[in-house]
Write a protein that binds this DNA or RNA. Structure first.
Lengths: 345, 345
DNA sequence: CTGAAAGCGCTAACAT
DNA sequence: ATGTTAGCGCTTTCAG
């Protein structure tokens, strides 16, 4: 004996009007089509009967699901929960629901996740997994599905994106180290096929040059992970170049550097200074506390959601890029270089 | 001129059969109602035309959305992303999609989030936000909505839950400290209205008694956060009881203890040992590395999803509780007590 | 301003 | 084994 959920029909009966009138009255967009008195009455009645519209049924008709897909490379990376918060906040305020999918940095999983999302008729996608030339982006474009990239951009800006000013961020780190007296700085770069990896690397080289610093060796990590950071750091230190600091392209890579230093019995920051990027949660708790480029995680999410909603409203609007300014949080992992230039190779 | 998405009708036309035949052929559950030859043909055709069924439209008819709501208290707490992974994995394998909602530990937000989820016609809910007597649980019961609690349980087991064996976990921590020689141990407890807070506290007192240890002061934190841990730790140390170790009810609280110790100029573990609970990501990176009770995050999520799916299939099945066994990860925050009994109050 | 009627894409009785 | 016929709950022409 399941009591039938009160639908638009029940309301119409109770109010003695036609269902379509109810629909019009309760939908903000069409409310003005109905007389004020009736609208008011229906609203009261709706509250009394505990009526709530069914967005799914409505979506079948309007071809709008009120949902947005969010692709995240790795939810265990503490940067993303914060971005998510911003996204959900802005989306919820507009009556939208986020459907989150993890890709584990795996293009295959990403494709599968994306397929499930489109099957669910998402109205748009926020993509945090983008590589510089990403198949998913091409697909969104082809499908005419509104999409916004977050944190990472793609080559050729055919799609909107909210990113950090990576070059500026890295410049802050390099300037900080230079001010401490470092003259030879290395870089553990992120993957070259991801915009942040590429931009931070370019930013690093530019900053080093701007400060007139010495040889600046670079080792590229093959993913944003602690293990990859450790490997890249080993490679960097194995180049036989004397450096007194390492700028890592993100915090996980920086932690990998910690590990490699420990393995070699080198103290941070006494032997080598390390800086990270993202200022992830608990970065201040690490040993040593990590100097890192702080980004506006939450704002990034909020802006991405805004951009997407705007694009859903007006699909033909031009793509735009929002670039957020980071700042530097100085902590214990960076200090003046050892006095005698130290050979670390 | 948007090319109309190929629907079941288009397929039917192309194959020269009736739409319902297509439906039957493509739905695993009804596939056996249709002749093998036709089924095969339709499958091929579907692939060729790039047809994919619309679960939303189907759901309108079947009253099943294929979605599950997941309520998380705080996605920035690193325990939850890991649980989520397990949930999504198991759900995706069954063709279900998770819709995640953050409540920020706020009952008001929880209610709102829950309302949005039910409006979306979720088939069930996984609740990680439960207090011991939770309004949401009552509501699920009333609505007949399948629900499973994860990590936290509720009083009275009217609903299924997947939890840790908290008493066993705390017992491991106490046993470890006792083995190191600690005779006076304090506890920073979690909120009393959350099952984990209550169970770990009870487990602590039981373990202390079982080991024949001395007076065991307890301070209760009003939330699972670093700040609350710091306050509770201050309270604990202010009781004027001499203790040499603190068992914290979770890792964030343990970090709060770190802060309070630092404020007082007390070294951990030299002056006071600290243990946490959850073994959150990066606990091994803290200063000092945190001894913590490790829980089976991912398994917890997987089992919760399983339980929920079973309940969706058979809504009248009895509630059951799965209790997972934790173990202890020993790190630098716990050591033998100082030789002369130290007065910390 | 409101009612009537059609239909979004699919599934589920009920035929046949 | 397949076709017929409704209809899920809502929105949207089109009339009046």
């Amino acid at each position: 004996m399941k009591t039938r959920r009160t639908g638009i029909q029940a309301l119409a009966d109770a109010a003695g009007v036609h269902p379509s009138t109810v629909s019009r009255a309760l939908n903000p967009r069409t409310r003005r089509l109905v007389s004020e008195t009736v609208a008011k009455r229906l609203e009261t009645l709706a509250r009394k009967l505990g009526y709530s519209p069914d967005p799914v049924a409505a979506g079948l008709r309007t071809r709008r699901s009120g949902t947005v897909g969010v692709l995240i490379p790795d939810i265990a990376n503490p940067v993303f929960p914060l971005i998510l918060r911003g996204i959900e906040e802005a989306l919820a305020a507009a009556g939208y629901t986020a459907i989150i999918a993890n890709t584990d940095n795996d293009p295959g999983r990403a494709r599968a996740a994306f397929a499930r999302l489109t099957a669910r008729r998402i109205d748009g996608a926020i993509i945090a997994t983008a590589t510089r030339r990403d198949a998913l982006i091409a697909q969104c474009l082809k499908l005419g599905l509104p999409a916004v990239l977050v944190n990472r951009a793609a080559d050729g800006s055919r799609v909107s994106a909210v990113v950090n000013d990576d070059r500026a961020g890295i410049a802050l780190a390099v300037a900080h180290l230079a001010a401490l007296g470092h003259r030879a700085i290395g870089h553990v770069a992120g993957p070259g096929n991801i915009s942040t990896g590429q931009a931070r690397r370019a930013g690093f080289l530019a900053a080093v040059k701007a400060h007139g610093l010495a040889a600046a060796p670079v080792a590229v990590a093959d993913s944003y992970s602690v293990a990859a950071g450790e490997r890249a750091c080993a490679q960097l230190l194995g180049m036989g170049r004397s450096i007194s600091a390492v700028v890592a392209a993100n915090d996980l890579l920086a932690l990998g550097c910690y590990d490699e230093l420990r393995r070699r019995g080198l103290a941070c920051p006494q032997a080598l200074s390390i800086t990270g990027f993202n200022d992830m949660a608990f970065a201040d708790r690490f040993d040593p506390p990590l100097t890192s480029v702080r980004i506006q995680h939450r704002v990034m999410g909020v802006e991405a959601a805004r951009l997407l909603l705007a694009q859903i409203d007006n699909p033909r609007a031009a793509a735009q890029e929002i670039r957020l300014q980071p700042d530097l949080v100085t902590r214990g992992s960076s200090a003046a270089p050892p006095l005698g230039r130290k050979r670390t190779g």
